[in-house]
Structure formats: C-alpha cells, structure tokens
Simulated scan of single mutants.
Amino acid sequence: MVGSRLEPCLLAPLAISSAHRRDTYCWSYTRSGQYTVKSEYWVAQNVLKREEEKQVVEPSITDLQAYVWKLKTPKKICHLIGQLLTGHVAVTRNLARRNMRCDNYCPRCGELEESVTHAIFECPPALQVWSLSSTPTGPGIFRVPSVYTNMDFLFWRKNAIIEPDQDRDPYPWLIWYIWKARNKKLFSGIDRDPLELVRHAESECQAWFEANKVVQPIIQDINVEESQWWEHPTYGGKESHAARVTPAYRIGSTAVGNGEHAPTFDMPELWNGLQGDDCNVKRAPGLAKLCDGAGKD
C-alpha cells in the first residue's frame, strides 16, 4: 500500500518520452550519457575517493612491511619479522582460528591465549629479555599490547634516543632468539636463561656487523721515473726511441712484498740483444735470460 501511494508522486515529475522507447541505462557523468574511460577515472578520483576517506578504517601496516627488508640484519630475521607483522606465525591463537586441535594457552607461561604480541613482548621470559637488553625501553612507549605499535617504536621512535648511523641495536636478533626459545620450550621442554639469550643475541649482532663491514681498498702507488733518452739507428725507415723506465713501488706493497722494489733495464742493451744473434730465442726462458743480462749493470 505504501509503495503504491508513493509511485504517483515519484512518477509525476518525469517527462514522458515522445519516442516511446523502453527505459535503458545511461552514464550520468557525461552529457551524452555514454560511458567513457575518462569519465570513470574522474569519478574514481573525485567521487569514490571522498567516500572512502569518510570511512573509518584501521591504520595501514604497509610502511612497516616495507621497512622490514631495510633492516641491517640477516634476511631470515627480516622474514620472521614480516611474518609476525602479518600474523602468519604458528602461535596458538592463529592455530585455533584455523580450527587446529591444540591447546590455546602459552607454552612458556601458561597464559590462556598466546598471541603474537604476547609471545614476543608480553610473556614473562620475553619481558626479562627486553629488560636486560640494551634496547631503549620505557613505560607506556614500548611493550604495549600491540605488535604494530611496538614494531613502530623499534623501527623509528627509538632513533630519537640513538643516532641512526650509530644504531647497532640487536633487537632483530632478540626477536629471533625469543621466538626460537619459545619453540624450544614447546617442542623440547627446554627453558633458556634470559641473560644468556641476551648475551648470545648481542654477540651474534656484533659478529654480523663486523662481517659486513665495508673495508676501503688500498690504492697502490706506482711512480714511473724517466731517465735519459737515447736514439737508435734508423730501422725500417723510422727512428726508434726508448727510455730507461724505473717502476718504483711503495713500501709494503702487496705486489712485491715488504720493502722497495725498483728494477731498472738498460733499454739500448736489451734492444741490441733482441736484434742480435739471440733474436731467434723467443721463448720465455731465453727472454728472461736476456733481461737478466740487461739488468746486471
């Protein structure tokens, strides 16, 4: 009844078509009513985008995921941190959500539910590790009940305390060994001492930075000294000129060992030897013998 009463009110303002055609769909964002890609792009940028901005959505973790692969740490640890951010790790809460038959409590402390935040930041053994480590911590700014907030602090916020260029914080290794200690407790029933874990993580961090330190190459200095020029008789219509070359290597050069090495050759004598009877001796032993004879002066 209500619909039948409203229909005349809605239909009255509509003009009756003189062509008496059936109703069809039209694209109201162009004058012709025809759809175009250009008009759809305008709608996406000006109409739909405004509607999306009005919606209340959760913060994006795209920046966190992108920064994971910029960490100064082995790639296996980057992969683990990325999995922690996306929730693709086998904590009991995730297993229960996938209908896995398992206990939902924490294997280390017996908490009723084990989440990613609890396993890495809130479990008592993990809390001891963070407290004993050199990572800056404080009440209300770190170890809050959100893995995203805690990772945000580790990635960027703590750099206000530590200079980024001097930042050798072992927190990626701490996360790695906290997770390994959790698995060892779950599968082997072995508890790791938090202080031992912190020392091991810091030593692994120091070893990794030392192994990846960029060593500047030592440039070898080679000085070429020119001596007196000499003139050889015409050979083949051209005059041949040469010089006494004295290559001098720096002391401690790896090319010649420890000490100075400055061999000299008498170029006229070497040239005459090559043009004389020994010119047919072109193998390495003969040439070396000829050079030794030229350098005995």
Rank of each mutant, 00 (worst) to 15 (best):
P107D: 10
K282I: 08
M151C: 04
F265Y: 05
G138Y: 09
F155C: 11
P13G: 09
P124K: 06
P59W: 08
A12K: 09
P74Q: 01
G259T: 07
I77L: 02
N258G: 05
P145D: 14
H79D: 07
Q275P: 00
M1S: 13
E239W: 09
E231Q: 10
A181H: 11
Y249I: 01
L84T: 13
K70N: 08
N183E: 07
H20W: 05
G293E: 03
R199H: 11
A243F: 13
F265N: 01
G273R: 15
E239Y: 10
K238G: 01
W179M: 06
C9V: 13
I218E: 04
G276F: 02
A66E: 09
R93V: 12
W230D: 05
E210V: 12
Q220F: 00
G252Q: 01
C109V: 10
A211F: 11
I61E: 04
I16Q: 15
W176Y: 10
L112Y: 13
D297P: 07
P107K: 07
I16R: 15
S60G: 05
L274F: 11
K72F: 02
N159K: 08
C78A: 15
P145M: 08
S4D: 07
I222F: 07
F187M: 03
Y235R: 13
R283C: 04
R192N: 12
P107V: 14
S4I: 07
R244M: 09
L174I: 15
C106R: 13
P136M: 04
S28C: 13
L174V: 15
L84C: 15
G3M: 06
G273A: 14
E7C: 13
H118W: 00
L287M: 04
A90M: 09
M100S: 04
G87M: 02
W173V: 02
A12E: 14
N159F: 04
G293H: 07
R21Y: 06
W42Q: 05
G286D: 02
P145H: 14
N183L: 03
R250F: 02
G189L: 04
C106W: 15
D292V: 14
I218A: 03
A255K: 10
P125C: 03
K49T: 10
E7N: 14
M267C: 12
L6S: 07
T117G: 08
I190Q: 05
H241T: 14
L112F: 12
A248P: 00
I219W: 06
K158H: 07
L10S: 10
